[in-house]
Design a protein around this nucleic acid. Structure first.
Lengths: 179, 179
DNA sequence: TTGGCTATCCTTAGCAT
DNA sequence: CATGCTAAGGATAGCCA
């Protein structure tokens, strides 16, 4: 009987890959796959998208359609400073950070919760986005807690950016590979 | 014989989906898939990543680890203004835009080209990245052509950003869905 | 660090809700 | 605009040339 040439793809857990070499290979391959997926998304739906990634080694890779900067600029223009434009339901844009951080875990919790109550809940009564639901059910205290953690995160980021800026003057470790 | 419940996934061409409804559904599903892929990439390799997308409807969705802003800020810090840091091999950051735009098509061309010449080429002699190769083989004229088109793109983007800014004052069509 | 080669594992097109 | 279902199309983990 013919022996299999390879053992084929093996299932892996979604957790940090210990072996440095495997981790690097995975980053390279999956990054390529991610960029291709983004490219297809843009072509298929006519959407715009930008992806920025930084490996542990400090190398930056980016993809953008029609360009990284155009998408990022638009994003910044829409999420910056002038938050007061929308009065009542206005939520600080910075909160998005926490949302993204908790995206997976919370969405999974919501998911599980939904499955449990699927029979006694009318889906029509649920908002389209879990975060909208979160907002509506969130108390003032929770909101303020989020905002506070956001402020701190902002500070951390600012410091980090400064570090990066200083690093740039002595090495190019953080420079995109295409420069 | 039992009839199949669904016809299953069908192969599609990577080109704009004409039907608006199907296009919307595809955007939604693939965006989710893209975000999950990015999430896995971050967890598996310890990398940082940010994705910003805008549907045709004007809604913005973003993903980031550890946050959109931290990754974007770092990117901007590394690619902005002070280009003169690296002297000789310094290439205007704005050129990245053209690269990304041509990523797919050029990479495919390179790919095809490689396959044709695979026997007469020593892979060891090739640079690690196709764009490095492009640079080295690009003449001054080509470079200047790129730069020129980049400048124009910059202008277009600036105008577009201004438009967005004005729009923000009269409607929230361009506002991220999480606001 | 990249690319090719399979045998799996994962994503998703078409429908329906 | 989003989710659930199912079968088929794609992405990729583990190994190498």
């Amino acid at each position: 009987m013919m022996q299999k040439k390879t053992q084929g793809r093996k299932k892996i857990e979604i957790k940090i890959i210990a072996d440095e070499n495997r981790r690097q290979v995975t980053f390279s391959k999956r990054r390529t796959g991610l960029f291709n997926k983004a490219s297809e998304l843009c072509v298929l739906t006519g959407a715009e998208a930008a992806i920025i990634t930084q490996s542990r080694g400090g190398r930056v890779f980016a993809f953008g359609h029609p360009s990284v900067d155009s998408v990022v600029d638009k994003y910044l223009a829409g999420s910056s400073k002038n938050i007061a434009v929308n009065e009542v339901n206005s939520i600080p844009t910075s909160m998005q950070e926490n949302f993204n951080q908790k995206y997976k875990e919370i969405s999974k919790e919501i998911e599980d919760e939904k499955k449990k109550n699927v029979l006694e809940e009318k889906l029509e009564d649920n908002p389209n986005f879990w975060w909208e639901e979160s907002f509506e059910h969130l108390g003032i205290e929770e909101l303020e807690k989020y905002i506070a953690s956001m402020e701190q995160l902002k500070d951390n980021i600012t410091m980090r950016v400064d570090e990066m800026a200083m690093l740039r003057n002595s090495s190019n470790a953080s420079l995109p590979s295409w420069i």
